[in-house]
Design a protein around this nucleic acid. Sequence first.
DNA 1: TAAAAAAATGTAAACGATTTCATATTTTGT
DNA 2: ACAAAATATGAAATCGTTTACATTTTTTTA
Lengths: 337, 337
Amino acid sequence: MSITLKEVANACGVSITTVSLVLNDRPNRISEDVKARILETVERLNYKPNPIAVSMITKKTNIWGLILPDISNLYFSELAKVIEQNAYQSGYNIIYGNTTDSIEHTFEYFDFFYNRGVDGIIIIYSNKFNDEDKAKLNKLIQEADIPVIILDRFLAENRTTTILVDHRKGGYIATKHLLDLGHKVIGCITGPKHIVSSNERLLGYKDALKEAHIPFDESLIYHGDFQPHSGIKALESLLPKKVTAIFSFNDMMAIGFFRECKKRKIRIPEDISVIGYDDIILSELLDPPLTTITQPIDALGKEAVLQMLEMMKKNDHNYKNIILNPSLKVRESTQKK
Amino acid sequence: MSITLKEVANACGVSITTVSLVLNDRPNRISEDVKARILETVERLNYKPNPIAVSMITKKTNIWGLILPDISNLYFSELAKVIEQNAYQSGYNIIYGNTTDSIEHTFEYFDFFYNRGVDGIIIIYSNKFNDEDKAKLNKLIQEADIPVIILDRFLAENRTTTILVDHRKGGYIATKHLLDLGHKVIGCITGPKHIVSSNERLLGYKDALKEAHIPFDESLIYHGDFQPHSGIKALESLLPKKVTAIFSFNDMMAIGFFRECKKRKIRIPEDISVIGYDDIILSELLDPPLTTITQPIDALGKEAVLQMLEMMKKNDHNYKNIILNPSLKVRESTQKK
DNA sequence: TAAAAAAATGTAAACGATTTCATATTTTGT
DNA sequence: ACAAAATATGAAATCGTTTACATTTTTTTA
C-alpha cells in the first residue's frame, strides 16, 4: 500500500542507499542535483519511511511506556498529560497501562512494555509495593537495557533515576502555616498506613510541631484512607479533642470534612481551620475555598521527560534523585486562632 | 541482547522454521518429541519473539491510537481507562495523544499515529471541528487502510463506525424529571454554542417542554461555557425570571451555581431544584448531593473496544452507528415544587 | 599525464521473524 | 516389497530499512 524506499529509488534511477543517505542526511556527500531530485520525488510520492523497518535496524521504537495506578485519578491524568505532551515534542509517543494499583499488574505491564520494545519506561508503581516488590523492581531495572524512571515514588537503594515530591516538606509547610496562625491543637487526617506519601506528610507534621516545641499527641491523628468518607469520620473522632485546626492529607477528605461541619453547623474557618493537600480543581470551589498544598505536577512531568531524554542521549547508566517541592496555596479555609 | 529464534533453533538442533511452526501452532505436524524439546528450550532460554520483527511480516503492531482532547478531563480519562483496560485484555496497547481540543493537533496525531503503523485509531475529535474539518476527517478515514472509530462525536455522512451518547435524550430525561416534580419555570445553563452535545441537550429540553405543552422561553436560557464560573453568572441572570428549577448542562457549572446560592442564602432544593449532567465524582459530595444525568462512560469505552476488535477481525468496511443512553441519577438537589 | 586523493554512488549483508515450497523420511495399501 | 501417501523438517525468500564496505567517477597533485 505504502510507498517504499525502493520505489523512490526506482523513480529516481538511483539505489536505495542513496535515497536513504539523503533522507538521513548522512556525511556521505551526495551531489546536490541528485539530492534535489530525490527530495522532490520523496515529496511527490509522499514517501514516509516505514517505522517498523526502521525500528528493525535502529532497535528504537520511539515509544515510551507509562505505567500508573489509575489514569482516571486526576493527579495521574494531569501527570500523564504533561508527560505525553512533552514527549511528543521530542518525537516520542506514550503507551500507557493502568495497574489499578495492583502489584501484579505493575510487573505485568513492565514485562509487557519491555518485551514490546519500548525505548524507556516511566513507572509510578503500586502503593502496595513492599520492600520485596521494590527489590524485585530494582532487579528488573538493572537487567533491562533501557532507561527506567521511577516517578512519584521513593525507591530505596535505587539504581535508576527517581523523581518525587518532598511530601515531608509538604506536611511541614502545611503544619507550619497553621502554627503560624496561632493554632496549637492541630488534628490530622492521614492516608492509609502503608502509603509512603502519607507517612512522610506525618513526619513533616511532627517536624513542624517539634520546631514549635509542641509535643506530639497520637490521639490527634485520625487514620483515614484518602476517601471523602474519612473526613466525615475524622470529625467525630477529633471534635472531642478540641482541635482548632485540621490538616487533611488530601483534598478529598477535606471535602468530606467540610460536609460534616456544615451538617453540624461548625463554621470554617471561624470555628476550625482546615488545610488540605493536592489542590484538586474543586478545592477552589468549596465554601470557603480550601487552603491547600499544591503538588508540582507540571514540574514532575516535565522533569520525567527531560531525564528520560537525557538517559536516551548519553547511554551512561548514571542516575539521579530529583526531589521537587510542593507549595502552600492560601485560600479562605484557614485563619488566625 | 535478546534471545532470537535462531538461537533457540541452534540450541535444539533444528531449523528456525520448525521453531516458528511450533510456536505459532501451525497445521504442519511437527513430531511430539521435537515439539516438546523446542517448547522446553523456549522456556529455558526465556525466548520472547521480537514484536518488531513480527510486525515486519504481519503488518500488525497490536497498538491502537487514541486521540482525545484532554486526558486530564475526568470524562476522557475515565473513558481512556476503560478503553486501555479492555484493549489490553485482547492484547492491544494504547498510545494516546492530547489534542488540547485543537483541530490542527487532531489531524496531526491522526497522521502521526497512522504513519507509525497503529492497527486502528479511536478518535474523539476537537469540539471545534466544523463541517469542513469533518469532511476532511471523513476523507482521511476513507483513504486509510485501518479501522477508525469516531467516539463521543457525531460525524454526518460518516463512513466508519461511530459511538456516541444520545445527549438529546439526556436533555429530555433531565427536563422531564423536573417537569414530573411539578416545575414549570425551568432555567438552563448551557455549554458553549458551537458544542454539539450542548445543543443536543437543549433540543431535549425543548422536546420535554413541548410534550408538557409549556412554551419555550429563550430568556430562561443562560449560555455558559461548561466552567463553574458560568453557574455563578447564571444565577444572576436567571433569578429575576423566577425559575423554580435549573438544568445545568454539566456538573461543574452546577457546582458554581451551588456556591452562589449558598452565598445568597438560597436553599437547594427548597427554594430551587438543580439537576446537573455528567455525574462527576464530586456530585455526590455536594451539599446537597446533586441529582444529575449519568454518562454511560463504561459502556462507551467497552463498545469502542468491541467494535474495534470486530473491525480488526473481519476486514469488511461495514460500519455501524451506535447510540448509548444516559440515565437519571436522582439525589437530593431536586424536589417537588 | 598518470597516480593519488576525493567525491559520488552502489552492492549486499544485516535486523528477526513468517511462510512458501521443496525435500527427506516414514507409514500405508496392495 | 514397492509405489503412493502421509508425515516431518528445512532452505530460502520476504518484509523495508540502515550501513559497512566496495566500486566507479571525478578532481587534484606532482
